[in-house]
């Protein structure tokens, strides 16, 4: 049925955006600056998998595991060797953002230099007709993407709301001055946020790379969509960011059903613009500040 296919397409798109947004939001929530290089962690993981699996012939799951681990290392190193020293020198968040963009450009160009600009395909899955599910056609990979997104969202939520590390991350995000007064180790919390966020990026890179092929500049467009999803939902909360991403997926697919086709990118930008202007805390976010009597 057409409607269920449309819904399925929306879920797939939303899941891809959510995979990007979750990691990004985790890092933003804890550190309060935009780690745009998150996009390149995603791309780097994809290309690593390509190199290990496609070029060197290492078995797929081993190669994926290694790629995810290395993605985590990449994110953590960016924090430890770039952001942290800058923060120690009292750099403002704008400076950190610029540094982040610098990393993004550097790594994208490095990838282009090593692998070339043409599109690479990770040939793990043979292209075949999808299966019928609830009136729509969906491939096993696409279903895996949706399920992974939901499972990871669950795992992240558990981390954030049911563990001490998660509680400390939220505390640092809420009130950084107070958190250091009561003795929370900022650096440790930040390290974990980058590590976990970047593992997520690694998983995203692998799944998205399989589904959409690899291109050195794909990180930028993914970040834009993921970021938009996060803003729509509410950047300060991981589940909200994920929900916003799903909303974006639905808005895009249903939007182009009724609007002329060239408007697909415009939908994302318009939504981003509207939310930043009128409700920057997102649909599920809370306006900052405690209530008083």
């Amino acid at each position: 049925m057409v409607m269920s296919q449309l819904v399925m397409n929306s879920l797939i798109a939303g899941s891809i955006y959510a995979l990007v947004a979750c990691g990004f939001s985790l890092i933003y929530t804890t550190n309060r600056f935009m780690h745009f290089a998150h996009g390149t962690t995603i791309v780097a993981a994809g290309y690593l998998l390509y190199q290990l699996f496609q070029v060197l012939g290492i078995p797929f799951f081993a190669a994926s595991f290694v790629s995810i681990c290395l993605a985590g290392m990449l994110g953590l190193s960016t924090y430890y060797y770039l952001y942290l020293p800058l923060q120690k020198r009292k750099a403002s968040n704008i400076v950190l953002l610029i540094a982040s963009i610098g990393v993004l450009i550097f790594i994208e160009n490095l990838i282009q230099l090593i692998f070339g600009a043409s599109v690479k395909s990770i040939g793990y899955i043979k292209i075949a007709r999808g299966m019928d599910l609830l009136g729509a056609v969906i491939t096993p990979l696409q279903l895996t993407i949706i399920l992974s997104s939901i499972i990871l969202l669950g795992v992240l939520s558990f981390l954030m709301y049911k563990t001490i590390l998660g509680r400390n991350m939220r505390a640092v995000a809420d009130n950084p001055e107070l958190s250091s007064i009561i003795g929370i180790d900022h650096v440790k919390v930040s390290k974990y946020s980058f590590l976990i966020g970047s593992y997520l990026a690694g998983i995203a890179g692998i799944l998205i790379g399989l589904e959409q092929n690899l291109e050195p500049t794909m990180g930028t467009s993914l970040m834009i969509k993921g970021f938009t999803g996060a803003v729509i939902g509410g950047v300060g909360s991981v589940p909200a960011a994920a929900l916003g991403s799903y909303l974006l997926g639905f808005a895009e697919n249903f939007g182009i059903w009724y609007l002329p086709s060239g408007y697909k990118d415009a939908i994302a930008f318009i939504l981003l613009f509207l939310f930043l202007l009128f409700r920057p805390s997102g649909m599920f976010g809370r306006e900052k500040g405690a209530s008083h009597d």
């Binding site: 001490i164 509680r167 939220r170 505390a171 809420d174 001055e177 107070l178 007064i181 009561i182 003795g183």
Partner: peptide, 24 residues
């Protein structure tokens, strides 16, 4: 030390706000 101004973690629950005050 209880400072002036923003004195709590707004999005954490009351219980979490208290628990976080305890030594690790």
């Amino acid at each position: 030390y209880v400072p002036q101004g923003k004195i709590n973690f707004p999005s954490l629950s009351v219980l979490e706000n208290l628990e976080i005050g305890a030594p690790a």
